[in-house]
Each structure stands twice: as structure tokens, then as C-alpha cells.
Amino acid sequence: MQRIIILGFALAALWLLLSGYFDEPLLLGFGAASVILCVWLAHRAGMLDPEGAPGGVFLGIFGYLLWLVIEIGKANLAVARQALAVEPKLSPKMIRVPAKQTTGVGRVIFANSITLTPGTVSVDLGDDSVLVHALTQDLADEAALADMGDRVVKIERRPV
């Protein structure tokens, strides 16, 4: 029930922000109808479970995102240098990084963080490890990736 209300408020806010009309009863009525329809469909399709709407993970995610953005910036420079180099020194490497996250959401956040950082792409996501393709030997830094995994474990909470 809690999730239904939160989803309804989120969708209503989305409608209002995207349409930009706050005083047209007809449009607000259409908006309310579509919000109710969407919530009902989501409820009926069983999407409002802890995996579809994770609650606990959001608490520490902002600090993590800030750290991630800085990492992405650094990695971007590294890959851009290779792309523009007269003679790119590529040494692609596949490594397997342990994924110690306990929940599915945590593993997905970890794998997506790896992919978002240019130079490393998660190719295969297993139950307890991620197969990573790295662009160069330097970017295939297992210690740095393990550190990223630990940070994800830290923000991960048990499903509420």
C-alpha cells in the first residue's frame, strides 16, 4: 500500500512537471485518470515488489553518485586520450571481479557503475561475480573495481 501511494505521487508529479499546466481542470482530470491507470497496471503486473521499487537503497545513493561522477570524469579523460592518440595503445583485457552485494538491486547498481565508467564494461553478470572487459591494462584495475563494489555494498540495505 505504501508503494502504491508513493508511485501515485511520483507519477502525478511527473505529469505536472512535464505538462506545465496547473489550473486546467480538464487536463488535470486526464492526468489523474492516467496516473490511476498506470498505478493499477503496475499493481496488477506485480511490479511493486522490493525489487521493482527498492526503498532502502536510496538512503546513501547520493554520496555514491557524487563519487561515481568524479570517477566517470577521470575515466572519460583516459579513454578520450586513447581515441585521439596518434597511435592508440590498446591492450584490452577481460577480468572477473567478485560481486559481494547481497541483493539483486545492489549487483545491478555495481554492474551499471562499471559500465558507466568508460573503459570498463560489464559483459556478463553472474551470481557472485562480474565479467569486465577493459580497454587498457591500466583501466583493468581490480583493486579500484573491488573498491567500487565495497562502496555499493555500503549503500545497500536489506529490502524494506
Binding site: N76, A83, P118, L135
Partner: peptide, 28 residues
């Protein structure tokens, strides 16, 4: 960055390396 990513996508030798170049365009 957008240009660099696209240049990398044309220049890099195989699919998996091109993927990284496309990532530069998508993020930064």
C-alpha cells in the same frame, strides 16, 4: 567529448573496444 567518442568509434579495431568509445559520448 561527443566528437572524441565518435572518432574512437570509427578508429578502434573491434566491437568491444568501440563500445568503450561510445560510452564516452553517452556519459561525459
Amino acid at each position: 567529448f561527443v566528437l572524441t567518442g565518435s572518432i574512437g568509434m570509427v578508429r578502434f579495431p573491434d566491437f568491444f573496444t568501440r563500445m568503450h568509445a561510445a560510452g564516452v559520448t553517452d556519459t561525459a
